[in-house]
Design a protein around this nucleic acid. Structure first.
Lengths: 140, 140
DNA sequence: TATTGTTATACTCTATAACTATA
DNA sequence: TATAGTTATAGAGTATAACAATA
């Protein structure tokens, strides 16, 4: 019994890890033709929800603020994002999508979602719902 | 109806993307204390299954062979992997875990699996099985 | 003093192009 | 000619430590 349970645990964990790698590949494959690294695509997609400060963004993306500074520099040079002064705190700034950035962000978002929808098209509604709920419960 | 279906599709795709990001973070967090980048941990864990040639490894990891050369160089310097001559083809080599590399590979593997098992501990067996099957069907 | 963001520095990851050696 | 792997090069991602400006 213990063996059976342990084996099932490993199966779920392995399936999640394998799926993660596959999704990472898909993310890279869909970002690339748009001229974006997966990390850049992630950043742009986060900003679809609205401007964010550097500290918040670094937390959302799980990277150091200094790493984020470089990323924002590169995206700002390409006019995909802009640093806007933060009203009420002269130390802070808000990172905002430019019109071009917004367009690209939507393209990047749609591209991954489309690929994933194709990949999961065969799953019946009940399964889709169960998987969605389960994943949301571990994502927090 | 169309709206409902489309919304459900987006939910599954979004849940998968969010889960991917969360798992990437976990992968990074568990690798780091072992002195490994997530990519290095991935490489070492693949080699648990046995030695692989550079071309096969690059395909498995979805990176160019030249990128892999650098990674193997760094791991070889730390005596975690070794380049073994390939019997029967003097152009080729096989990448193999050293004893230290094998130990570390297992530690890295167990660390992620443990974290994921903790994260998914609340899911009932039926759900675990459904999710595992669904994920395996998209991982191919 | 604490916080926001940047700079300086050093590695790692990655791709492209050109190359060597062997098949 | 084709394949296995490497070298050279350039750019991107990342962390740590030290710093400036503001709160």
């Amino acid at each position: 019994m213990v063996t059976t349970t342990a084996a099932r645990d490993t199966d779920l964990a392995s399936a999640l890890v394998q799926a993660m790698h596959r999704l990472q590949d898909i993310h890279a494959e869909t970002s690339r033709p748009l001229g974006l690294t997966p990390q850049q695509a992630h950043l742009l997609c986060v900003l679809i929800g609205g401007p964010e400060g550097m500290t918040d963004l670094s937390r959302i993306l799980s990277i150091e603020r200094s790493s984020l500074t470089s990323m924002v520099d590169r995206l700002e040079r390409r006019s995909l994002v802009a640093r806007i002064p933060s009203p009420g705190d002269r130390r802070a700034c808000r990172i905002e999508l430019t019109p071009d950035g917004l367009t690209l962000a939507h393209q990047a978002h749609d591209a991954v979602v489309d690929r994933i929808n194709t990949l999961t098209a065969h799953l019946p509604p009940t399964t889709r719902h169960a998987v969605t709920t389960a994943l949301q419960s571990i994502t927090g």
